[in-house]
Design a protein around this nucleic acid. Structure first.
Length: 902
RNA sequence: GGGCAGUUGGCGCAGUGGUAGCGCGUCCGCCUCACACGCGGAAGGUCACAGGUUCGAACCCUGUACUGCCCACCA
């Protein structure tokens, strides 16, 4: 005997192995078919997958399985991302924790090797997780953003953009993360509101008079001030422009200048200008040719200032400066102020604006093309409301800083001749005593040689060339992903067949970082958008709506949940909550319902099979069943299939899951199996079993994209009954809507029988009729059709409502001591001598009456309104009329029942 | 400062121009020979607020409030 409860663990392991051994997910080009391609958003190799990956990939898997079952040549391309800064940080932490070493202790080469070793470990864990979740990825061909083919793509794209002069090197104010010690692009910076302070400081005049008071949030940068700026229109300061003031504490003289950028309303209307440490000040400095003083270095330590502060951390220096300013009587005011602090998206430490030479990509042309493609709907967004923000971003795009001063990533493919670039190259000795190129300056004469491999110098033909120390932004390789996975720049047959891909499924949080750039690169290099649709999934949050994070301790691990409840349950719970672009508050409770559903499917299948003993397959769905409930369930099944497919096509996975869930649990289990029970030993035994098994098998197919394991497992055990089955469900055709199976009449008639049954059950429950008690039910209806249906299928009612005797007629009077129920035109009377509580019955009837009378009022008002009768669609008017008629009748029946309370 | 979402029964969420559904929870009754991860039944909502369009609005429009998110160089 099979166990009562479904145990997913064993089954999922078994099925997973089977899929793997039989290469079920192997993707092969089939020119006779339409390709359906999804390239996975490659997870970073920073650790195990989280719930966000769970949702994102499950959505992709559902689409892939669905489309493959619909006859398309489906290919879901797997891979991982090297994850630049994020991964480097993980490894640095690991090194420090396990061996108390920094990356500098290891040196560049060894460190990079360590990360490669980590990739083997972490990558495998991820690929293993793909399998555990049942994701139909072709794992025989895994890509990694750092592998050789992808490196070639990166080089091809770099040199191409270099030749077009889109890539250039420039000295700019960039975002510098002091902790990660690297430059970041503008979109890698997050803005947080911090409770900070605004200090008002006095800068005295050259002659020692009161001078000017400025407001600043960064008093530690006064040492790098080059000027005080005021708005030229500001009357308060007009006569001071051109004069000089002394910087507090160091007494260096700086001029008062006028610049439009100064807001008169903010603070005191006077702004200290620190060109080296603030982006706005930098621009002002440029406009006025101000001198640049640097007082904070790349580590966030203070330099070039009085010895007292030398080497201090910037935060400490701020405190000390304020203290000293106060002592000097130059601190005028200190007020609380919420300022926007820029932080690193990887480590969340405060960003330091930093002046340095970096590599950039010129974006205007690229953005223009992307904009055009998006506006022409070459790429469509689902939901569409992200189109606006994206186009807006593209319109205001800034050049992209692509160089990172870290070690893990694609090294910039630019080399320098030590001889010819001498003055532009700065070397330092690292901890291993090795000489390293630490700084490159084009301003000082470094001459770039763009090359994939170590080149000879084209000028002096020497071989003493050395590669740029920086690596590329990890998003640079990500931007090429939809092409690089197919071997671009080689025009491979894969690239030709699979590109552009069908759809990108990703989170809305990386639209600018990733989606936009893929579109730009795809257009630039392949002349075509990389995907036609973008499906944006939300963020999986904790059950209170907070973002899951390690520091909050609210992270749920998909692997844990999978162990506990099964991958199908995790998948189904995510899918049933996934509405386009919306975040999902995810609690463990939500998975339990899905687990229960798995159990329901399993038990229903087990029951059907238990009752199929001795029946030989194959069994086919009878073409024209006579029995009402047979016609009904087939029709309901057919409807469910149509609705579910339609919803999937619209990317409404939650709606599709819901439809199938309710069809299987409600219609199939609660009604059809229950009705079928009494026929297992009857003459139409084989027909009932055929319908049960075929409907079940087809419903499993329909559910397969959502919960692949359990459906596969059960389907396998049903194969002996199924004609023309495939070995695996993914190879089957997705069930199709068949108009011939629709049976409106059967649905109407069943609805009547179900309604009457429910009325009887309700009365039983309301009056606590003991379950074993034999009851008699009288059914009265004036409707001839209804009467005929009830008469013909009274066994449905007697069995489903557990009724001993049933009396049916069109002029049955209410018996004494009986309860009354109503469904449509049918009145249900159940004599309940000794059980009936008249007060309770009256209350029930009153309540029912109130609802109906309300309905009557509504409809009378509608029909009394000539505009409604005139303007509303005919069927609406008809409907209202019919409803009114029925309601009046029912009201009358309830009133009669109330009068007859005895 | 600009933009985008959301506001529906205790909780989490669907929903559509014709009078509101699901899951969980709650309450009542059931170990009915597939399933107590179950079966049957019930209670519970003036769909944030104010206007407007319409014969009719939770759904469309305008505004307000609150919540969340994204973008932005007021130090």
């Amino acid at each position: 005997m099979l166990p009562k409860a479904y145990d997913p663990k064993e089954v999922e392991e078994k099925i997973s192995k089977l899929w793997k051994d039989k290469h079920v997910f192997k993707a092969e080009i089939d020119e006779t078919k339409k390709p359906y391609v999804i390239v996975i958003p490659p997870p970073n190799i920073t650790g195990a997958l989280h719930m966000g990956h769970g949702l994102n990939n499950t959505l992709q898997d559902t689409l892939i399985r669905f489309h493959r079952m619909n006859g398309e040549c489906a290919n879901w391309v797997p891979g991982t991302d090297h994850g630049g800064i994020a991964t480097q940080n993980v490894i640095e932490k690991k090194l420090s924790k396990e061996q108390k070493l920094s990356r500098h202790d290891l040196g560049r080469e060894k460190f990079v090797q360590t990360v490669w070793d980590w990739y083997k470990e972490c990558g495998n864990a991820i690929y293993n997780q793909f399998e555990k979740m049942g994701w139909a990825l072709d794992q025989s061909n895994i890509r990694f953003t750092m592998d050789e083919d992808r490196a070639k793509s990166v080089y091809a794209s770099f040199s191409n953009l270099w030749n077009k002069k889109y890539i250039y090197r420039g000295k700019r104010m960039i975002n510098w993360c002091v902790r990660c010690s690297t430059a970041l692009s503008d979109i890698e910076v997050e803005h947080e509101q911090h409770a900070g302070k605004l200090w008002h400081l006095r800068y005295k005049m050259e002659n020692g008079s009161d001078g000017v008071v400025i407001a600043t949030t960064r008093p530690e940068t006064i040492f790098a001030d080059s000027a005080i700026a005021v708005n030229p229109k500001d009357e308060r300061y007009k006569n001071l422009i051109g004069k000089k003031v002394r910087i507090p504490l160091i007494d260096r003289l700086i001029p008062i200048i006028a610049d439009e950028a100064v807001e008169m309303e903010f603070g005191t209307g006077a702004l200290k200008i620190t060109p080296a440490h603030d982006p706005v000040d930098y621009e002002i400095g440029q406009r006025h040719s101000l001198e640049t003083f640097i007082v904070i270095n790349d580590k966030g330590k203070m330099i070039n200032l009085p010895e007292k502060y030398l080497g201090m951390d910037r935060d400490l220096c701020r405190k000390e400066t304020v203290k000293d300013l106060e002592a000097a009587g130059l601190l005028v005011k200190e007020e609380k102020y919420n300022n926007a602090v820029s932080t690193c998206y990887r480590c969340h430490s405060a960003i330091e604006p930093y002046l340095s030479e970096q590599w950039f990509v010129k974006m205007d042309e690229l953005a223009k093309n992307a904009l055009k493609a998006i506006e022409e709907e070459k790429v469509k967004f689902h939901p569409a409301n992200w189109k606006g923000p994206l186009t807006n971003w593209l319109k205001n795009i800034q050049d992209w800083c692509i160089s990172r001063q870290i070690w893990w990533g694609h090294r910039i493919p630019v080399w320098y001749c030590r001889h010819c670039s001498e003055k532009g190259l700065t070397f330092t000795t690292d901890k291993q005593g090795k000489e390293q190129l630490s700084k490159v300056s084009f301003e000082d004469g470094a001459k770039p040689i763009v090359s994939f491999e170590k080149p000879e110098c084209p000028q002096c033909h020497g071989h003493d060339t050395i590669q740029d120390p920086d690596v590329l932004d990890t998003w640079f390789s990500s931007a090429l992903w939809p092409m690089s996975v197919f071997g671009w720049p080689e025009q491979t047959k894969e690239l030709k067949y699979y590109y552009p891909t069908s759809i990108l499924v990703t989170g809305y949080e990386i639209i600018y970082l990733w989606v936009a750039r893929m579109i730009m690169m795809g257009l630039e290099f392949q002349g075509e958008v990389p995907f036609k649709d973008v499906l944006l999934n939300g963020i999986v949050r904790d059950k209170t709506g907070k973002k899951m994070s390690k520091s909050l301790g609210n992270v749920v691990d998909p692997l844990d949940l999978t162990q506990k409840y099964g991958a199908d349950a995790v998948r189904f719970s995510l899918l049933s909550q996934s509405v386009l672009g919306k975040d999902i508050p995810y609690g463990e409770e939500s998975i339990i319902g899905a687990r229960n559903f798995c159990n329901k499917i399993y038990n229903a299948s087990r029951f059907i099979q238990m009752n199929s003993e001795g029946i030989e397959g194959p069994l086919e769905l009878p073409a024209k069943p006579k029995e009402l409930c047979d016609r009904w369930i087939i029709s309901r099944y057919n409807n469910a299939i149509k609705q579910a497919s339609d919803e999937i096509k619209k990317y409404n996975m939650a709606a599709a899951a819901d439809i199938l869930y309710h069809f299987l649990w409600g219609d199939f289990c609660d009604w059809y199996i229950e009705l079928a029970k009494q026929r297992f030993d009857g003459e139409d035994r084989k027909e009932v079993i055929s319908i049960l098994i075929n409907i079940l098998y087809n419903t499993l197919k329909a559910l397969h994209p959502f919960m692949p394991f359990i459906t596969e497992e059960i389907a396998m055990s049903l194969k002996k009954y199924i004609k023309d089955h495939k070995e695996f469900l993914i190879e089957e055709s997705y069930p199709a809507y068949n108009p011939a199976l629709s049976d409106e009449q059967a649905q109407t008639q069943m609805a009547l029988l179900q309604g009457v049954t429910t009325q009887i059950r309700t009365i039983r429950a309301q009056f606590n009729v003991p379950p074993g008690l034999k009851i008699k039910v009288l059914l009265n209806t004036a409707d001839r059709n209804d009467l005929a249906v009830i008469a013909k299928y009274q066994n449905y009612i007697t069995s489903m409502a557990k009724v001993e005797t049933l009396e049916i007629g069109s002029d049955i009077a209410k018996p004494k001591q009986s309860a009354t129920g109503l469904h449509g035109t049918t009145t249900v009377y159940i004599p309940l001598e000794g059980l009936i509580d008249f007060d309770k019955e009256k209350a029930r009837l009153d309540k029912e009456l109130a609802v109906i009378e309300n309905g009557i009022r509504n409809r009378e008002r509608m029909l009394g309104n000539e505009n409604f009768v005139k303007n509303a669609p005919k069927e609406q008017v008809e409907k209202a009329k019919n409803e009114l008629e029925q309601m009046l009748l029912r009201a009358q029946q309830i009133k009669t029942a109330k009068e007859d309370l005895n």
